[in-house]
């Protein structure tokens, strides 16, 4: 009954403009990552204390910003998430463009939706990926504290993209 189907169109994705991507790539990845884990350790303060992130212990996860050409490689240490500079094997890789990560971090898009549309890719230990996803989205909104200035910066970044479309 093919005629009862309605086809959806896959949408295009705004990308980091080259003039912004170039300087990003000039900074070593481990420096970006140290910034990122500082933010994550703040956001997940309570969860770290409760042991909710222990499943990441001695596992290496990497977040790849495809359009930025940078990657954040980190693991969970004794005191929280730490940047991982070594090469070594990766347990979980999540890749996508900055725009989509911004949408996800503000809860504006559903991660499975972006996965279906191939905008977010997940490789490695899928169970670890699901647990990470469910940890992030299981945080109670009041408890999830992306610092105000950062939230504003994320929103600004999204409207920057939308204005250019």
């Amino acid at each position: 009954m093919q005629d009862t189907y309605k086809t959806n169109e896959a949408g295009g994705n705004p990308q980091i403009p080259p003039f912004l991507a170039a300087p990003l790539k000039m900074v070593p990845n481990v420096v970006h990552t140290q910034l990122l884990v500082a933010v994550l350790n703040h956001v997940f303060k309570q969860q770290l204390r409760d042991g909710d992130l222990d499943f990441l212990e001695s596992r290496t996860a990497v977040i790849r910003l495809l359009d930025g050409g940078v990657e954040f490689r980190f693991t969970k240490g004794r005191k929280g998430l730490v940047a991982h500079s070594g090469e070594g094997p990766i347990d979980l890789a999540i890749s996508g463009d900055l725009y989509d990560f911004l949408q996800l971090s503000l809860g504006k898009e559903d991660p499975d939706t972006l996965f279906f549309q191939r905008r977010i890719r997940l490789e490695g230990d899928v169970e670890l990926g699901l647990e990470t996803k469910n940890l992030i989205y299981g945080l109670d909104v009041e408890a999830l504290s992306i610092p105000g200035p950062l939230r504003m910066a994320f929103n600004k970044a999204i409207s920057f993209y939308q204005d250019r479309q």
């Binding site: 009954m1 009862t4 189907y5 086809t7 959806n8």
Partner: peptide
């Protein structure tokens, strides 16, 4: 409404399923 629902749908299509078979 359909545009909103299509956006979050699995795969590339929506259907009336068996209801209209």
């Amino acid at each position: 409404w359909n545009a909103e629902l299509d956006k979050v749908a699995e795969g590339a299509q929506t259907t009336l399923g068996a209801y209209h078979r």
